[in-house]
Design a protein around this nucleic acid. Structure first.
Lengths: 210, 210, 210, 210
DNA sequence: TATGAATGAGAGTTCATTCAT
DNA sequence: AATGAATGAACTCTCATTCAT
């Protein structure tokens, strides 16, 4: 049987995939906790229950794992939007689902802090900046375009504007996530719920209450 | 005579004040450019035209100079607001002056990036976080309170809300400054002028056009 | 039947011999190219089209394969001398054949560089040095003794001198091979042909033209 | 007085020069003992009674200190030749002085092993090789040319040949030094004294005894 | 026997900080 | 106060070797 020979190899590959996945999860946590610069490979490896060597068997460098993480985050984001929006026939329902998802994002502080880290990283590595920004926007708007094209007909026809509103929303998310973490007592959930949806409405060109 | 001895001492003090000022200016630039972690004392000293020794003669550590910088920035911010607003009798004029100043701030990327760095620093040093957040808000709202108390009477009576809107504005400024630097082509000056004032209005008046 | 079981075993042994031979060839190339210290097991395995595991299935360590290589080189050298000299009845012809073989050796840079690496290795591992030097000379002079005893009758009776001239010749070969590789433009083939045979003659006959 | 201010600075510079000199001496010893690749910065620093940091305050890298060492060795060599030869009016005396110096060199095993290391380094770093070989020969023959031009009139007019004989002599020195260290019992001082001067004479185009 | 993921000691290098001047 | 040589801990990354398969 073919399985007789493939099984061990397959098991090894699965094991290795598990190590890689563990390392990615660990890296995400450590990067968000300590920031890119202050994160130590050893901490990432330890968090994953692996050794430094295992890290370097799976990633070429600290930079590589960081950027890999961003690509995966973009994919995850795309999947999440799709899941929320698909199946909803009503345009208003889809809009509300989208807004709901975005507001939720503020509370996923780890993700938002990583986004901030990623953008700081990009603008501090001028050689990569243009490429990274392009990749980031391509990933973000490709989701929006496919899933939300009919939701904002007047905008979807203008990719440039779509990219722009994507960044505007991200600006809100990142700014509020950072400040909520910085001063959770002052910028608490109640305050955020009170203001963010109204700001979002402005971005989506909808007057409040319309 | 006393002067015989004081003059050189005075000159020394002035010289040392100049060194300190140069180092602070340099630190601000380098921290904004490279981030707190990646900034090197040597680069700061070199940018100031001084040596590592001069740095340590004026500051106890990298952390100290960074935090000193924040205090100074808060004072500078207070002075700037005062200058813009004072002398304007008309309430609407003062409001416009304030809004104008805030929008301007987005383009002072160095300052906003430093604010982001500062907040990231705070939330990554849990022991200091509460104290740093308190200091930051005290400095920010003390300005607002004194200068703007009659401008937003209903708010100034509620320090908690004032602190909250301060953070909301900062969230906007930081989020937009970061993303404008990350992707200047997409989030250009035109886009920012189109959206930020409207978002600001939401925060201030809590109703568009009110 | 015995064959039922031996055949696969034999096949396995042949396969493993091939692997071992491939690894040895690869090791020789990599060691000569990069030097003992800088050579990586992974490079050797890759050059042999095998994996790290195959290497360790055949050799206990990097050191072991390196020393094994020297033993094989000595045997190969012995075989080569025998093939050149045997069957030549004329003493002068045998001398010329020998000189010819030695001069050829200079151009086998890989072999000479490995000899240099081997001797450097020996003198940097004091515990092994005496043993390695003894092995090396035993291998080298055993060839000479058997094959060349009647060629230099007065010398073959003095093993000590024979060992000495062996090292003298090796000194020439290694020195010239190294410098020819270091500066091939200056120490080119013409220069080498012009000088090395004359130097060799000095070592063999201990008098020019005798 | 000018000294009042210069003294401390001068003392610091001297101290720093001493550190650099100590490190160079230590590096020479360690490189010769362990080889370039196996030498550890920590060992060099410890041998110099300094820390790793002191090493990097004086040299950019392991490679840099190694190459610096070669330049210094070339200068030292030039000085030594000059000292031996200058003041000797008789051409034969100068020739003998030169030969004597060269033979002596064989016993300076540390220097010869470093030369071997240097050449191995060069041919394993193809990008630098041509430049290193050129530098090396320029340094070596510039000595010979100035000091020995009238000694070998027919050769000094042909720089190419001079470079060639330089390499030939180095080949001898390196080959014999290596093998003498490899097997000191067999290739002892007596054997070397018996053969090397005669080989040298061949290189200098002088029949033995002429 | 052979694979290659994983280990972990140890390498070169950096840099905040100290200290003699 | 200012210099800059020196320290040494800590970093990223490499690689000989081990081990489950």
């Amino acid at each position: 049987m073919v399985n007789e020979e493939q099984k061990p190899v397959l098991r090894q590959m699965l094991k290795s995939e598990k190590t890689r996945a563990e390392l990615l999860r660990a890296a995400e946590k450590i990067f968000a906790r300590d920031g890119f610069e202050a994160s130590r490979i050893e901490d990432i490896a330890a968090e994953a229950g692996r050794s430094r060597g295992a890290f370097y068997a799976n990633f070429a460098s600290k930079t590589e794992v960081f950027l890999t993480l961003r690509t995966l985050a973009a994919q995850k984001h795309a999947r999440a939007v799709r899941e929320r929006v698909q199946g909803l026939q009503d345009q208003e329902a889809r809009y509300q689902a989208l807004i709901g998802y975005i507001v939720e994002q503020i509370y996923d502080t780890q993700t938002q802090l990583l986004q901030i880290e990623f953008k700081l990283f990009a603008l501090r590595h001028p050689r990569m900046q243009a490429r990274l920004a392009e990749m980031h926007l391509e990933a973000s708007t490709s989701v929006n375009r496919r899933e939300l094209s009919d939701l904002f007909p007047e905008k979807s026809s203008l990719p440039a504007e779509m990219r722009c509103s994507t960044l505007e929303i991200e600006a809100l998310l990142e700014g509020f996530a950072l400040n909520a973490r910085f001063s959770p007592k002052v910028l608490d959930e109640v305050s955020i719920q009170a203001i963010v949806p109204r700001l979002m409405a402005q971005i989506f060109s909808r007057a409040e209450g319309s």
